[in-house]
Structure formats: structure tokens, C-alpha cells
Amino acid sequence: MRTHPGIAESREKYELAAESPAARAVTGLTFLTGLYLAISPWVVGFDRFTTLTVNDLIVGIALALLALGLASAYGRTHGIAWVAPVIGVWTIIAVWVVSGHVATTATIWNNVVTGAVALLLGLGATAMGSRAWPR
């Protein structure tokens, strides 16, 4: 199956997409967004809200790992790029869903802005494979 011409051509197309400067910027910024989300409870100072802290840590690590996969092997991982915008949406709503009544202005701003950035970058990562790239 690996040597099938359609699969090889498709993989080559996605690898060309991942090598563009725009794609590198998107995956790099997505990685940094994931790292920031993972450490944000300690940076912003809401680490006393355990459930939101654990959520942001896990979701941030997942986003960073997804970005690493997209950056290193987009031809093999492009099918899961849709997860990045979903993580962004979850990050936006998690402050109310996970933390309940303990949401503060700092937690809301942190998660909404970080989630919006992750959503936009995730949409960019998802769209990378659909562009026509020169050979």
C-alpha cells in the first residue's frame, strides 16, 4: 500500500505544504501556543484552581505534541490537523465548563485569548493541505 502511486503523490503534496514558510510559522506558533497554555496557570497565577490547571496543562501538552507531529511529518499527520481548532474551542469554553464558579477575570482572559489563537492557528494548519503547492 505504501508504494501505491496515489498515496506517494498525496504524501509528497502534503510534505511540500509543510515545508512552506507559512506552514512552518503556523506549526511553530501552534507549538508555542500549546506550551504557553500548559504553563499559563503558573504564569497568570490561577494554579490554585486545580481542575482548570490540570485541564490547561494536559490540553496544552496535547496541542504542542500535535504541532510537533504536524511540523515533523505533515504527510502522515495531516488527517488529525482538525484536532487543533477543536482544542482551541475547548480552551475557550473550558474556563466555564471545567472550573464552574471559580472563573476569574484572569482565567477567562487567558483561556479565551489562548483558545482563540489556537483556533485560528488550527484552522491554518488544517487548511495547509488543501492549498495547491508548486512542485
Rank of each mutant, 00 (worst) to 15 (best):
A64C: 03
V89Y: 02
I87E: 09
G88V: 01
A81V: 07
G45Q: 10
W133V: 09
V102M: 13
G115N: 03
R24N: 12
T91Q: 14
T77E: 07
N111R: 08
G6R: 10
I80A: 08
V86Q: 03
R11H: 15
L121S: 04
H4S: 12
L35R: 09
T105I: 15
L16F: 12
F31L: 15
N55R: 13
G88D: 01
V102W: 13
V97P: 00
M128P: 03
V54I: 14
W133G: 00
T105G: 14
G124M: 01
P134G: 14
P41N: 05
A94K: 02
L57I: 09
V102E: 15
A8Q: 12
N111E: 10
A125W: 01
L121W: 05
P41M: 06
L121N: 04
G79H: 11
H4Y: 14
V97R: 05
R24T: 04
Y74D: 03
P5Q: 01
I7G: 00
V117S: 01
H78Q: 00
F46P: 03
R76I: 01
A71Q: 10
P134K: 15
W42D: 08
S99D: 12
A103Q: 11
T107M: 15
G79Q: 11
A23T: 06
A62L: 15
R48H: 15
T107Q: 14
A125L: 09
L35G: 13
T33D: 11
G129N: 10
T50A: 15
R11P: 04
L66F: 08
G28M: 05
S10E: 12
A127I: 02
V26P: 02
A18F: 07
T77D: 04
A116R: 00
T107D: 08
M128E: 08
V98I: 13
T77W: 13
